[in-house]
Amino acid sequence: MQFSGAAGKMQFGTMATFDNPPQAQPLPRTGPPPSDDLELVEQAKQGSLDAFSKLVNRYDRKIFRLTQHITGHREDAEDALQETFLKAFSHLKQFHGDARFYTWLVRIAVNESLMKLRKRRTTNAVSLDEPIETEDDFLPREIASWDPSPEQRYAQTELREILDRTIHSLPPIFRTVFVLRDLDQLSTEETAEALSLSVPAVKSRLLRARLQLREKLSQYFRRETMS
């Protein structure tokens, strides 16, 4: 298979040689921070609202990011966030510490967000296990080099808008996996656990999400040619 389009040959010539390998190191992952989640959960199970409030303060921003990215609607995201923590508090006794508390929370948040999304849509076409992947759906159409740090062309607020808008243009199944893996930095296994998906399904959807985002972001980040 040959891709069409013009590649950045100057960049290729200067970067991809055996003497100067293409700097293809795995992206760093920070992993989950050490925490006393389980201790707080135990206290909350005994009725301590203070302990549960500490868990809320620890994770509410990340859950808010997730609900915003899935619903794409501010009001729905706020409601989904609230219902996530209320449901978590009500069902705390069902959490036995087999997974991280945050992974359990994510599972609730995803369900709440998808319910909001379904209500907003006229069809019931929102699911995390739709078999919409095809053999060719990730083949690239846009092959243009980007500058080394193309995001610096934009002010922070404008960049955030571009990134949010682009994420939201993905199907829910792709953007949810992308948010959990690349923004929340959950492991593949944790993401699979949180979404009730298989590990291969998570990997496949992450690949498609990244390639589709790359394709869509090219219009903003492609190298500007001299006229």
Partner: peptide, 22 residues
């Protein structure tokens, strides 16, 4: 990717996509 310019571009821009979001 050391031999295929198009694949190098796709690889590089995919990596940057993730880095920009992160």
């Amino acid at each position: 990717i050391a031999k295929c310019p198009n694949c190098w571009v796709i690889f590089d821009t995919t990596r940057k996509t993730v880095q920009i979001y992160q």
